[in-house]
Nucleic acid binder design. Sequence first.
RNA 1: GUGGAUAUAGCUCAGUUGGUUAGAGCGCCGGUUUGUGGCACCGGAGGUCGGGGGUUCAAAUCCCCUUAUCCACCCCA
Length: 446
Amino acid sequence: MSEKRPLIQPRTLKGFRDYLPTAAIPREAMMETARRVFRSYGFAPIDTPALEYEEILTGKGGEESDKQMFRFEDSGGRRVAMRFDLTVPLARFVAQHAGELGTPFKRYHIGPVWRGENTQRGRYREFTQCDFDTVGTTSIASDVETALVMHDLLDALEVGEFTIHLNNRKVLSGLLERLDLSERSAEVLRALDKLAKIGPEKVAAEMRETAGASDDQCARVLEFAGLEGDTDAVLRALAPLVAGSEVGERGVQELRELFAGVAAAGVSGSRVRLDVAIARGLDYYTGTVYETFLAELPEIGSVGSGGRYDELASLYTKQDLPGVGASLGLDRLFSALEHLGKLETRATTADVFLPFFSQDRRDDYLRLAALLRREGVSVEFYPEPRKLGAQLKYADKRGHRVALVIGDDEWEAGTAQAKVLATKDSHDVALEPTADLARRLRELSA
RNA sequence: GUGGAUAUAGCUCAGUUGGUUAGAGCGCCGGUUUGUGGCACCGGAGGUCGGGGGUUCAAAUCCCCUUAUCCACCCCA
């Protein structure tokens, strides 16, 4: 025991974090909210392994994601990789289980993903995504629902004002087709994605450099990207720019239907915006694309995004499995809310605190706590008979709502003092019947 | 991955041109009649100055390496 050995320095890997109760409690609450919203649309939960065969994951999201993927050989000599997102594993999943699932298939999946990139606020190497997707239909109704879910989610999470930016890859394709830039679409879109951040001149410069675009082509792309204002007006302005391109015209039509559907479902026009400049980095999107920004902290980046990918599962199956979905970046959103002071931090999960006061009554306390839990009240019983003041201080620090103070006198009388910690108000309550006591405690905890 | 900044008690920070046992505030623990918390007073614990190496009689202070965090680029949730 007294032998001295060198201590190992406790530390965590770059981009990986511990969650203390004050962070883990609100984080779990966010996940519960997300589950509730997903389920309200009929999405069902699934889970998949963190580790996949390397060939399943690589080459799906473009060069950049391959570079950032954690890859290695397992002890059985298999080339493996940790999932980079939840969408590619979904594609594998539906290709593998299509027969048992049936379509359309709606699933949600909450879990960690790993990306070996450099860290910053809201950018980690291990972070949790809340994904929801609809597979097996090309109906625009599912594109609409995807926007609605994202909307309901952020609304339920009480993040303040936000805007869901919508666009359609087909419109971009149509434009590039008209401009003879289809061959370099990836480069053009990557440059275009930065418009809001670096401005038109630099975007043009990058397009000239990486995509070999001419001045005229740059001007046309920027004119297109500069379209702003009322959704209907932008859609009208868009039409002539893609006229003659079959994909482009279809893209504009899809956008029309998308906005009509979202409006029909009652979403405020201020929360959705047609933003023709968003292109999304991931290579697999083929239709609608989504990006969500917080009004109070846009610089942290998109807190939720996604899109339609009609070809993704085709890498694993000959079956036609188009899909559309999006992902809420839980940790980035969490980081934003923390930064904005919008997180409620409590270090306890129990509403009611039961001080251990009368030393000889331990079993009575234990029995009462058990009865209350059976009535659905969360109760923490302090394990040591310390001074009442110290116990109340503990309860106050942790954030319990109500302290149920019972000393010798109360045990004799069959009553207790229910003390609301926040206001210091005491209420006399009867210990029996337990159901009534539980109801009273619930009222006081609210 | 590239460039820059930072790294001292649980937290926020001080530590003068390298020099005796490294400080403060807050927090934490205990006490001020073992029946009532956020105030006050008293006392206490807690740091090999991110880690490793080097220069020096002497380093938290200078040099090198390393790890992490933040910022920009890149990319994205």
